[in-house]
Design a protein around this nucleic acid. Structure first.
Length: 266
DNA sequence: ATGGTGGATGCTCCA
């Protein structure tokens, strides 16, 4: 079994103890992090190594930043979307054994119609092309991260209030659907799920306590992996911890052949 | 239309 997890930590500097605690509890084999908000040279490699983790990081001071923690070595690392000039560190793809992992921090988009929204759409276009190439090259592809898109009404606590707004606009949902059209499956929706499962709750107005969130963090899988996915959930627990990230981790399990497990699985 | 909160930075931006 191989467990893949994804967590927007909103500053790894602040959240490192929580990351170590949660990883010890849940034992992911691959843990993708977003919004590390750290330059590469400030990445806490030592403390992570003490806990048995190797990392790759596409770091940036103050904003963005994506990392992957693993037990084994990363190969063929990519940190940019081909064809998109972008200083923002939002992409990190790496290969572990036979498994290609793509870690994303999709732009938030600010407001529908804004300049940042246009950037989000252009970014998603470039992502679509990139993932098409990745899927052509690799059989086992997992695409994880903070997509900043709630795919469907079931992923939004109040879909009527959110309709047309950033994170849940028609345009963004269509862009998300185009990713699925490449052949990727939203692993969460491969299973019966309870209602009201979300991965992000605004810090303001006690929205977590009131159960008012959105499911915008996803684990997508190529056909070969979707076939062997045995579980996909969001763990809301760390969102209730003291001084939490505004996101909860998404987790998926895959029944994989031994060749991949040799690369760091359990 | 604004505010509510949190993180990093430094008298503000981003989410």
């Amino acid at each position: 079994m191989l467990r893949v997890a994804s967590w927007n930590v909103n500053s790894l500097n602040v959240r490192l103890p929580q990351v170590l605690e949660w990883a010890e509890q849940q034992c992911p084999d691959l843990l993708a992090l977003q919004e590390t908000k750290l330059a590469d040279e400030r990445f806490p490699s030592q403390r992570l190594a003490e806990a048995g983790w190797q990392e790759v990081h596409a770091g940036q001071k103050t904003y963005n930043g994506v990392a992957i923690l693993a037990r084994g070595e990363a190969h063929d690392i990519v940190t940019d979307l081909p064809g998109l000039e972008d200083p923002q560190r939002r992409v990190l793809a790496a290969t572990y054994g036979d498994l290609r992992l793509v870690n994303l921090y999709v732009p938030n988009g600010s407001e529908v119609g804004s300049e940042k929204f246009d950037y989000k759409l252009r970014w998603l276009e470039a992502l679509n092309d990139f993932l098409g190439e990745e899927l052509a090259r690799h059989e086992q592809v997992v695409v994880v991260g903070d997509f900043n898109i709630a795919p469907a009404a079931a992923d939004v606590h109040d879909p009527e209030a959110w309709e047309g707004r950033v994170l849940f606009s028609e345009t963004e949902r269509a862009a998300f659907q185009r990713l699925l059209d490449l052949g990727l499956a939203d692993t969460f929706r491969l299973f019966d799920q309870p209602e009201g499962v979300y991965s992000w709750w605004d810090y303001r107005m006690n929205l977590f306590r009131r159960g008012m969130g959105l499911r915008i963090d996803h684990i997508l899988a190529s056909p070969a992996l979707a076939k062997v996915c045995t579980r996909s959930t969001v763990d809301p627990e760390p969102r209730g911890w003291e001084r939490p990230s505004d996101h909860a981790p998404a987790v998926a399990d895959f029944d994989l052949p031994a060749s991949t497990e040799a690369a760091g699985g359990t």
